[in-house]
Design a protein around this nucleic acid. Sequence first.
DNA 1: TATTGTTATACTCTATAACTATA
DNA 2: TATAGTTATAGAGTATAACAATA
Lengths: 141, 141
Amino acid sequence: MAQSITRQSTELRMSTFRLARRLRLENTDDDLSESQFGVLAVLNRFGPHTLSQLAERERVTAPSMNRTVNFLQERGYLRREADAADGRRSNIVITPEGAVTVRATIDKRDAWLTSRMRDLTLEEREALAAASLIMDRLASE
Amino acid sequence: MAQSITRQSTELRMSTFRLARRLRLENTDDDLSESQFGVLAVLNRFGPHTLSQLAERERVTAPSMNRTVNFLQERGYLRREADAADGRRSNIVITPEGAVTVRATIDKRDAWLTSRMRDLTLEEREALAAASLIMDRLASE
DNA sequence: TATTGTTATACTCTATAACTATA
DNA sequence: TATAGTTATAGAGTATAACAATA
């Protein structure tokens, strides 16, 4: 019989935090934190966003995102472009250096997780891929 | 065609961090952090552990776990019992108060995630349950 | 010597509150 | 008045390094 939904949600929450901690551990010699990389990857894949849009997508507050964006801007990985129609906004755009960094970071960082995932069966990988989509939907509510 | 393993691992990593941030947000009025709760839940479900065992299971360092255990001990949710055979060790045991708190915390905290999960289909919930197990295996390598 | 646990210290990420500029 | 963004500040969680006690 299936577990109760409560039990499933407890398990999912604990597994999510454990995996997040394990992944963070694997990053230590990286120059981008998980949050920083996440922003750059979104810009690279989905194009320019405003600060609020990034904050909402990554599930953090605007001040947190502002800090992350400042860091990435100082490194030259993105730039703020003034919005022609609304002086309060700026459009945040990845730079060529940022795009190169996304690619290099994926290659480097995914060594660990990708290699672990290669040891899984096809079915297990597909279960994780399906779960990723559902997790994003859960997070966006 | 299935996505590449690299793409799958990037998606899983980003989804994991997004969901972790979203879940943490939901906890703010709780008296136990996710890490604190995780330890108590493990003790409640799997019995006594040494400090090292807890650190390894939860994927944190021993000093981090020590801090968490101290907090829970001060609150009266667990106690350290001297190990008869090895004076360096202590066995960390949940107290009755701790067990009550685990139960109450699950009920309170899972309101959000459980309610979101009720909106999913049975297949989606089973995909998440399957993924939780795989995520734990990934985290424990 | 090696292992278990602890203390000291510092860093990263995040949040809330208060503020500025623009709509 | 409301919204987008920013600055100031504080707190939680984690790590590494150094140490103490015991095996």
